[in-house]
Every structure is written in structure tokens, then in C-alpha cells.
């Protein structure tokens, strides 16, 4: 049977991808950002997930304003890194576990989560930056060490799905994975955040205290964390900080009690506070 053994929360700041792609990660500005992922890369080598279920948001790349699905599950065989306006990232094509993805889609819909099924989709930095920071440098000729099932969540047009809805979706994803016969080690990623505001006169907002409390709650009291209302993210963590609802999908797919095996927090990467956490199910 397939099992979700661990969860990863991680920011997906585009500039982090640019820093890796242009080989400037050892510059003083970037060094502390990447230092915090050294342990994560070792962990990935030990953990060896067969499949990563990756929750992210598209940044008006695959979806424009004409179609805004709240939850869109990637069911295509593969996903090309997209040109987001400055050329595609030089990273491997993302390959899916198509049978598991379709199984999850069916299971979710029968479980009353009416997701959108994507049989063609390009993926942007929201998906590829988390893979890059967790696996390290890869060229387009390489293969990602795991298959990846993308779940794109709308956080661009208000309202994003509630934290509670995301948390419960995580539970339904777990149920779907556990009803798949193949013996697979699945790790779930929740990405985005942490505090940041990219727009208008309040741009540059960072709230480290709030972010750290969020990380604490995620580990210790995830149900409480999932009830945080949107306006609190917007006010306290910046208009783009609402991306953090996606971390609740990851958390909902794990056991109630988890072991926090790693945490990293650094300000800044471009406009953003970088947050990262690795949580393991105790039985795993």
C-alpha cells in the first residue's frame, strides 16, 4: 500500500531559483538561505520518496484570469517548466505517477472535494523551486529523483480556500494515497510563504514573530492553525502571505502527532521570509 510518511513546508521564492540557476548561492546574501537546506538534502537522500505530492500555487503562468480553479490536480504524464517571462528554468521535466494521480482525483471527488483535473499543464517556480532547494542543482538532462503529483491551489484571487478546507483536503489526500495498492513512499510538500507582501506601498512587510508562531502551531496544534482567518494572514503576514494556507494541506495529510526533524528560517530572500520545516509521522 502507498503511504504518506512525512511532510515538508517550504517557501518557493522565485529569486531562490534564479540564484541556483545563475550559480550565485555562495554569495554572502544567499549563503544563509541555502545553508538551512543542507540537512534537508541529506534527509531527502535518506528518505528517498518514490512520489512527492506537491501543493503549490501557480503565479498566473498555467492559469490566466480566464480560468481560476481553486484546486487543480496535475494528471498529465509530465509537466514542462514554464517560461514565466524570463525564460524557462533550466531544470528537469517533472514526471508524474499518472496512475496514482488519477486514483487520487477519483477518490477526492467521491470524497466530495470537487477538484479540477489537469491533463496538460506547465509548472512554474512555485513547483520547481521547492524541488530545487530540496534536491540541489539539477540540469535539464537530469531526472528528478522522485515522481511528482502537482496540486495547484488558487491564492491569487481572493478568497483562497480556507485553512480548514485545506487541512481537510490533506486528510482526504491521505485516505486516497492509503487506498492505492502499489507500495510507495509518498512525501507531501506544502509550499509558499512565509510573510511577504510584493505589492503597493506596504511591500516588504515581514513578520518574523508571526511566522515562527505559525511554524510552532503547525507542529503542535495544527487544527488551531488551520482556523486562522484570511484577514489575519493578509494583515499580519502580508497580502501574499496568504499562500501559507497551502501548508495546511500538507499538515492535514500527516498524523495528529508528528516529529519536527528540521526547521529553517531566514530573512530575506528578495521580498520574502524563507521558512522551512520537515515533519515526520511517528510510525514512519
Amino acid at each position: 500500500m502507498a503511504r504518506i510518511t512525512a511532510g515538508v513546508g517550504v517557501s518557493h521564492v522565485p529569486a531562490i531559483g534564479v540564484a541556483m540557476d545563475t550559480k550565485i548561492t555562495d554569495q554572502p546574501y544567499w549563503q544563509p538561505v541555502f545553508k538551512g537546506f543542507e540537512k534537508s538534502r541529506e534527509w531527502m537522500k535518506e528518505k528517498k520518496p518514490d512520489v512527492i505530492f506537491l501543493v503549490y500555487n501557480d503565479h498566473c503562468t498555467a492559469f490566466d484570469a480566464s480560468c481560476i480553479p481553486t484546486f487543480a490536480l496535475g494528471c498529465a504524464a509530465e509537466f514542462q517548466p514554464a517560461d514565466e517571462g524570463w525564460g524557462p528554468r533550466p531544470v528537469p521535466v517533472v514526471k508524474n505517477h499518472q496512475k496514482l494521480a488519477s486514483h487520487i482525483a477519483q477518490s477526492l471527488i467521491l470524497d466530495e472535494f470537487d477538484i479540477t483535473i489537469m491533463n496538460e499543464m506547465e509548472v512554474d517556480h512555485g513547483l520547481t523551486v521547492p524541488l530545487s532547494v530540496m534536491y540541489g542543482d539539477m540540469t535539464p538532462e537530469d531526472e528528478w529523483p522522485a515522481l511528482v503529483i502537482p496540486l495547484a491551489v488558487n491564492v491569487v484571487q481572493y478568497p483562497a480556500p480556507t485553512g480548514n478546507r485545506c487541512f481537510n483536503l490533506g486528510k482526504a489526500i491521505r485516505k486516497a494515497v492509503e487506498s492505492f495498492d502499489e507500495d510507495l513512499n509518498v512525501v507531501i510538500f506544502g509550499t509558499g510563504g512565509m510573510s511577504h507582501q510584493l505589492q503597493y506601498k506596504r511591500a516588504g512587510l515581514i513578520n518574523a514573530e508571526w511566522d515562527k508562531r505559525f511554524l510552532d502551531l503547525l507542529t503542535e496544534d495544527p487544527v488551531f492553525a488551520s482556523k486562522i482567518p484570511h484577514v489575519e494572514y493578509l494583515r499580519e503576514a502580508g497580502s501574499e502571505g496568504v499562500e501559507m494556507v497551502m501548508w495546511h494541506v500538507m499538515r492535514g495529510a500527516l498524523d495528529e502527532e508528528v516529529v519536527e526533524v528540521h526547521r529553517h528560517y531566514h530573512v530575506p530572500a528578495s521580498n520574502t521570509a524563507v521558512g522551512h520545516i520537515i515533519l515526520e509521522n511517528k510510525a514512519a
Binding site: Q157, Y158, P159, Q199, Y200, K201, R202, V231, S239
Partner: peptide
């Protein structure tokens, strides 16, 4: 709209969209 009192910020809701 409980988010309209945040300064220096536009929340991109359906009206803005």
C-alpha cells in the same frame, strides 16, 4: 470586506478582478 482597512495594500478580490 474585512480586509479593506489594511494600509498600502490591494486585496485582489472579485471586484478588482
Amino acid at each position: 470586506k474585512d480586509y479593506e482597512d489594511i494600509p498600502g495594500t490591494f486585496v485582489f478580490d472579485a471586484d478588482r478582478s
